[in-house]
């Protein structure tokens, strides 16, 4: 085999292998979408974060606009501090917005949903804190409340 055909075949092989790797990274692993471009960090305190994890999505009206970066505990106030990064394209989120921990589906993974507030002049920026938060719904507590309601009802009869 002459050198040119050999080089062509090897070139094809290496290119195909690298393309497969790229396909795995971008199409299967969705590398591009996981990244937040030119982001800014915002903090929020929660009483209970349920099953929220680092890298969980942050959504606005159901559209993913960021992800959770770190979860720590505020030792003085016994609260969870969630730091999340928002995409730089969305810098006009009112500073009085609410951050809620929601669940996708009945037993799906948990994520942060942002409900925009009414403030038209002040927007969230790097290092800000979201004051209005809603905690994760803990299924066990919910069942407990339902049980209490049910037993109350039976007691009146």
């Amino acid at each position: 085999m002459n050198r040119k055909t050999l080089e062509l075949w090897v070139g094809l092989f290496v290119a195909a292998g690298l393309m497969a790797l790229a396909m795995l990274s971008f199409k299967v692993g969705n590398l591009a979408a996981g990244d937040v471009l030119d982001g800014y960090e915002v903090k929020a305190h929660f009483e209970n974060i349920g099953g929220l994890k680092v890298k969980s999505p942050v959504t606005l009206a159901g559209v993913r606009i960021g992800r959770v970066k770190a979860i720590t505990v505020d030792k003085q106030r016994y609260k969870a501090v969630v730091t999340f990064e928002l995409d730089g394209r969305y810098r006009n989120i009112p500073s009085d917005s609410t951050a809620m921990i929601l669940t996708s589906g009945l037993l799906g993974e948990q994520y942060i949903g942002i409900v925009p507030g009414a403030d038209e002049d002040k927007f969230l920026k790097e290092g800000d804190k979201v004051f209005k938060t809603t905690n994760a719904v803990v299924l066990e507590n919910l069942i407990g409340q339902v049980m209490v309601k049910l037993t109350e009802g039976s007691g009146k009869k």
């Binding site: 292998g17 690298l18 497969a20 396909m23 795995l24 299967v28």
Partner: peptide
């Protein structure tokens, strides 16, 4: 050493 990772990537991609 060079060929095996490339082949493995192709295997996974074609498998998907």
């Amino acid at each position: 050493v060079v060929a095996l990772p490339l082949l493995a990537a192709l295997f996974s991609a074609v498998g998907v």
